[in-house]
Amino acid sequence: MNAIEVKNLTKVFGKFTAVDNINFNVKQGEIFGFLGANGAGKSTTIRMLIGILEPTYGDALVSGYSIKNQSDLVKQNIGYMSQKFSLYNDLTVVENIRFFAGIYGLDGKKYEERKEWVLKVADLENMGNVITGSLPGGIKQRLALGTAVIHEPKIVFLDEPTSGVDPISRRNFWDLINELSEGGTTVLVTTHYLDEAEFCNDIILINAGKLIAQGNSQELKSNYIKNPILEIESDRVVDSLEILEKEKWVGETSIFGNYIHVILNDSTINEQHIFQLLQNKNGIAVKRVEKITPTLEDVFIHLIEKDSKKNVQ
């Protein structure tokens, strides 16, 4: 059974279509990555799935309940945590836990048990009386996730949970997500970080409200970019890029620090052609040219550019 089934989900604000006829399924217990640029419609989709925004068309079943007609039942079966860490900064850690336990109706032994669990996962075992606002970001974020799942929901939605957090805290946070997933909780997570997307069992990518790709990371890499990619390292990155873009056999280009990734339209082109063009004709020192398998980033840049071009036409 699928934890989430999204059918023709659409949200229109006035003349603007924020989410445009999206369909996807999320399997029970998996970590599902939801990717897209800012304003692509990720948050709008999530807000519909958690029952606080009504869809204009379409529907979704979350834990078997319709978000259109049974949003109260949906709310009882999910947890939600957003980038803003919706904890009360002026309450202590335990006061926050007690409050969220209270609105989900936990009390007595169950409450004590879950309180201990939240304190443990947030690494705050002896710091229950600390004011939440004074905690460091990474800890606060784990506390927020802990309180968001205090009622042990079957599905948890995480809306950019790691934005603005240092890499070590991000790593710790993902350990916690994996722990939840192993315990059978379905996790739907939106993120900007493509390295985080690699941790997901399944991924969808949306652009301008439309779903443009889905699959696991292997499928995405092999299904969406058929043409070879070359990684070029040279001493004048910007100049090299300008020269390359004039060539007919160059498809898309993108800069990654000192490297340029080039998707070739013509598979007969090889490393030698690049050396010839940049070094011999234009006098740019080329350190390295290598054929690579595409990264998720290449895939997404490729897909988003393709989609944007289509939209312009």
Partner: peptide, 13 residues
């Protein structure tokens, strides 16, 4: 203003 209402909106409250 602080966004905490969001957490209340998604609860069964």
């Amino acid at each position: 203003e602080r966004g905490t209402i969001e957490q209340i909106n998604v609860s069964p409250l």
